[in-house]
């Protein structure tokens, strides 16, 4: 079933991109979920949409080719992350308000750029719901660079990020530079979101970061195992999503999310059955 994915270059680009984001989205998503920042992914993906619309607008109106929608989306997403952090420090007592502000700003800008670019086209549809055929070799190189940055930085700062996620106060008392580490984390989140949009689409990108973790957290013992299971769920969903997307000619984003939802329901059920059996044995 996967033979076509190794035969054609455009499918190779998609497969490699898929496998990379299947690794980095749940990896970073594990930190996003335990830090209770799941909605940030949604906010940033909408800002990335504004960036993509801006890139498409420049391409269509002025023939600008050096700033592709992927790179403009990444740029907007990173600036969105910095803006969220500023808002969170300004509205210290209402930090969650940063999300609707950034989300509505993203949608507002998207509408403006889409209209200026003379409407909704097929390319934008691919960005919204993901596509099997839209990843260029250039996009793949960008995603390889992002994946490398994410893996290296997360490996280096794993212990600090874990400490900050588990007990922020203790991390601060111990002298960990909480603000700097958090800033790094939020920028990485923006990069992962922009890398994932090509495959799963703007509207479903946060699902790839949070659903595998939600499933994994039910059955994992410890944080490292949570990450490992999340990546396994993420990769499984990506592979099924890409294969079904190619053969059924549908955007892969929908299938990926539905596979993840199925894994989530399965883990919830399995955990419940296991707990019931344990309880019965105890009686």
């Amino acid at each position: 079933m996967l033979t076509h994915f190794f035969q054609y270059e455009f499918l190779q680009n998609t497969l490699y991109t898929g496998l990379l984001i299947g690794l980095i989205a749940p990896l970073l998503g594990s930190f996003v979920v335990v830090r209770r920042l799941s909605l940030i992914a949604d906010g940033l993906s909408h800002v990335a949409l504004a960036g993509i619309a801006f890139g498409l607008f420049l391409e269509k109106r002025y023939g600008v080719l050096f700033l592709t929608p992927f790179y403009s989306g990444t740029l907007f997403s990173v600036f969105g992350a910095i803006f969220i952090e500023r808002l969170r420090s300004i509205y210290h007592a209402y930090q969650e308000i940063a999300i609707p502000i950034i989300l509505s700003a993203g949608v507002g800008l998207s509408v403006i750029f889409i209209s200026l670019a003379d409407g909704f086209n097929n390319d934008l549809y691919n960005y919204l719901f993901g596509s099997v055929s839209a990843v260029s070799r250039n996009d793949l190189y960008g995603i390889i660079i992002i994946a490398t940055i994410v893996i290296v930085i997360l490996s280096i700062f794993y212990k600090e990020l874990f400490m900050l996620s588990f007990d922020e106060e203790h991390a601060k008392v111990s002298g960990i530079h909480a603000k700097r580490i958090h800033f790094l984390f939020i920028v990485l989140t923006a990069l992962v979101i922009s890398a994932s949009i090509r495959i799963v689409g703007v509207l479903l990108v946060s699902a790839l970061m949070t659903l595998p973790v939600a499933a994994s957290i039910r059955i994992a013992r410890g944080f490292k195992q949570t990450i490992l299971f999340s990546i396994m769920f993420g990769e499984l969903a990506i592979i099924i999503g890409l294969i079904s997307g190619y053969y059924l000619e549908i955007p892969p984003g929908g299938t990926i999310v539905m596979v993840l939802i199925t894994s989530l329901l399965l883990t919830i059920t399995l955990k419940r059955v296991w707990l019931n059996m344990k309880r019965k044995r105890a009686i």
Partner: peptide, 14 residues
Amino acid sequence: FPATVKEVVSTGLT
């Protein structure tokens, strides 16, 4: 929070 005892205690060494 999915952290083992070992992982939690390790944060004391970070």
